[in-house]
Write a protein that binds this DNA or RNA. Structure first.
Lengths: 341, 341
DNA sequence: TATCATTATGTTAGCGCTAACAAATCAAGG
DNA sequence: CCTTGATTTGTTAGCGCTAACATAATGATA
């Protein structure tokens, strides 16, 4: 006699037996209750509860060749920027059947490609990837994926499928204009990691300075090290040692900006009088800091929410009116750049 | 003629055809290459590459009634504390076949129970859950799960299965002794969210103060609002308005501690002279702050790494020598409590 | 070389679910 | 009463993979 495998949890057949219907009816009652008459539905629900039945998602995925997994690939788990977007995705998906599967590419394009490959192996319901800088192979994989794909955090005229984010270039440019407007002259840039998005911020910033004839590459300091508060403090010290006449600095993110503030405080510099500081993202702490820190506010939660909305619409068969949604940014002006111009 | 479903990507049968072997041989070559002779292995590998074959994980999970999913349930995605542990889990799991599936319980026990139910429906390879405060039903579900279960972030003599973390009570107590030792007398506590772990920190802290006869409930201020830097600034202002003679404060986490520092700076108070501050977790920014902030350092990355090690050992059939691993904590003494006693 | 243990590969039958088709039931109109 | 069309439920086969058993090839031993 052959041993039965996995004879553990109740299956849809057990529920069907108990309710006195066929398995397909149970399947329908669970997936689309409207397709089953009220009395049967009640009997099935009762049987489900009594048996504590949980559908076997793998079997379902295999039979329908369509899983309930939304693959999400982000470059960092510790970066607050992605945490907010992720939180939105989880919040939005909570009350549906869709499940998030999260991959961490650590800012490595090849790792991202590997993750895309793995995720596609699961026939995901949809895919969300950060940014628009995939390798050609990764892009090809995504283009041929037969599920909705949303690129988040950036906008680009040529999305793989759909896209929601904002322009990092314009954000950087706005930061530049703000410092110029505030009367700062010797304006620098501090950037860590320098992933493609940070690079675009820097380029927009440089363009703003250039347009006013105030661009000086000596005042731009970047590193591939990952950003942190202490790194911000370290870099501003180095930069000031090299260029003591620097008056203001744009940091590629808020952690770095906070570090610059701490660095100034340790060095006895007054902010904004001796040095103006502007960050990027407007994390919660920026408003609380002393002095409060100017930043470019981005709608990270909205990006996650919009991404899910787009996916849901597509899965419902609708075609989104715009394949690229620009959620923009706002300059949050605070004490750290409030120099009497 | 019946339409074939899902006639999309290549299957194991396609690979088997191309390599001139049976499907089970391909299956074995992919899962355990040592079971297949070298020449066949090479032919199979070549076929896999040529067809760009990716195994269908759902089919595999169904057939073996064992998925490659490690379910992880954390109470928050934005809390840096969990981000570090998560990062470790992802780092450790990267080069194996195991996939992480992440759930966010938002500090709601019922939501955690729901997630456990969903995850168990996928027959996970293992489960990692935060803390030891599951509902009785959730605990029962986990106890009957036929996979390794690791509770992280805490230690408890009675784990569901395995556990790795540290004692929040002892951490809080250490913070209390430190402030007493530094000569502070009117010592307060500020706590947001007040999840079970924060509560245990507070209890340990209170116990330390009580042992020195310096416990005063008037100086303990808690809220269920979620922690943030601005909340820290707000609460210290409220607490000082109520008890102007407060000399030092223990914050239930570092975000709150940073907020208290900012609050003091805005109010013109000197730290540590007018107010001593100690946080919990020792996030990166604590060392960079000005003044640098004392904190209880916890090994969050190590917790994630150890959890995966324990899971892997169990999956390899080994029994861990200790079902509960205490990774401890260290007091990081910095300027914010450096009062000349 | 015959015999047995070992290793390498193949055959068969599902895992639990759902798509596609089929049949039964029902409502309304002539 | 029978049509007709819509609605509800059931039957059958198969999604892609692997467990269990079966067999073939290989090696070791006397």
């Amino acid at each position: 006699m052959r041993k039965r495998r996995g004879a553990g949890r109740p299956t849809i057949a057990d529920v069907a037996d108990k309710a006195g219907v066929s398995t397909i009816t149970v399947s329908r009652a669970l997936r689309d209750p409207a397709k089953v008459s009220a009395p049967l539905r009640e009997r099935i629900d009762a049987a489900v509860r009594k048996l504590d039945y949980v559908p076997h998602s793998h079997a379902s995925a295999l039979a329908s060749s369509r899983s309930n997994i939304v693959g999400v690939i982000v470059p960092s788990l510790t970066n607050n920027v992605f945490a907010d977007t992720l939180r939105a995705i989880y919040d939005e998906l909570e009350h549906g059947p869709l499940q998030v599967q999260l991959g961490n590419s650590r800012y490595v394009a090849e790792e991202e490609e590997r993750l895309i490959r793995i995720f596609l192996g699961q026939r995901p319901a949809a895919l969300i990837v950060a940014g628009g800088d995939q390798t050609p192979a990764a892009r090809a994989l995504l283009e041929s994926a037969d599920c909705p794909v949303v690129q988040v955090m950036e906008v680009d005229p040529d999305p793989i499928d759909m896209m929601v984010g904002f322009s990092h270039f314009e954000g950087g440019r706005a930061a530049g204009y703000h410092l110029l407007q505030r009367g700062y002259r010797n304006i620098g840039f501090i950037g860590a990691r320098m992933d493609p998005r940070s690079r675009r911020r820097m380029e927009g910033f440089a363009e703003a300075l250039r347009s006013a004839g105030r661009y000086d590459s000596e005042l731009f300091m970047t590193t591939t090290r990952s950003s942190s508060t202490s790194l911000g403090a370290e870099l501003i010290a180095t930069l000031r040692a090299k260029c003591p006449d620097i008056e203001a600095v744009f940091c590629n993110n808020d952690d770095m900006a906070l570090g610059v503030l701490f660095g100034c405080q340790h060095a006895g510099l007054r902010v904004p009088e001796d040095l103006g500081i502007i960050g990027f993202n407007d994390l919660e702490m920026m408003a609380a800091a002393c002095p409060s820190l100017t930043s470019i506010r981005t709608n990270r939660y909205g990006i996650g929410k919009t991404a899910v909305d787009m996916i849901r619409a597509r899965l419902d068969g609708e075609e989104p009116e715009n394949r690229v949604v620009d959620l923009g940014f706002q300059l949050q002006e605070r004490q750290s750049t409030a120099r009497r111009a």
